[in-house]
């Protein structure tokens, strides 16, 4: 088959991949009102009553919320051999950071994490789970 005839076939394949991925994403999306930390579910209000507050400066201004390092300590999720903390969003997006980042990070009332000097791609929103590993 010539290249000319393959072009529409590739286009259909690409569209099918996009369609099936969209259906899959829609099917697996989690709609949770709680955040799972170390196998325990917490509401955002419980988290705010549990851990200390912190204000950080980002390139989008001041962000105030729960100090992430304190949150990990207060939820009993600290382990001496762990240094990877993965923040998972309801849409499947997730980012992993080290303890150093937690010390300059906050979880806001809008359920979004911010770090004072990181790329915005680490600012995960709609958190459903924090995994310690």
């Amino acid at each position: 088959m010539g290249k000319e005839k393959l072009i529409p076939v590739f286009a259909i394949a690409v569209l099918l991949i996009g369609c099936f991925s969209a259906l899959y994403v829609n099917a697996i999306e989690v709609d949770s009102k709680t955040i799972e930390i170390n196998n325990t579910e917490y509401t955002i209000n419980q988290i705010f009553s549990l851990a200390n507050m912190r204000t950080i400066i980002t390139d989008e201004g001041e962000k105030t919320g729960v100090a992430l390092d304190d949150l990990i300590i207060k939820t009993g999720s600290v382990c001496s051999s762990c240094n990877a903390y993965t923040f998972k969003s309801k849409d499947g997006y997730q980012q992993t950071v080290t303890w150093d980042y937690l010390e300059k990070g906050v979880l806001t009332q809008e359920n979004r994490i911010y770090f004072s000097d990181s790329a915005h791609s680490f600012w995960v929103k709609d958190i459903v789970e924090i995994e310690v590993g």
């Binding site: 690409v14 569209l15 991949i17 996009g18 369609c19 991925s21 969209a22 899959y24 994403v25 697996i28 849409d91 499947g92 997006y93 997730q94």
Partner: peptide, 10 residues
């Protein structure tokens, strides 16, 4: 996150 990336190209 790959399925969402693939879906976003539609």
């Amino acid at each position: 996150f790959l399925p969402r990336i693939l879906a976003s190209g539609l």
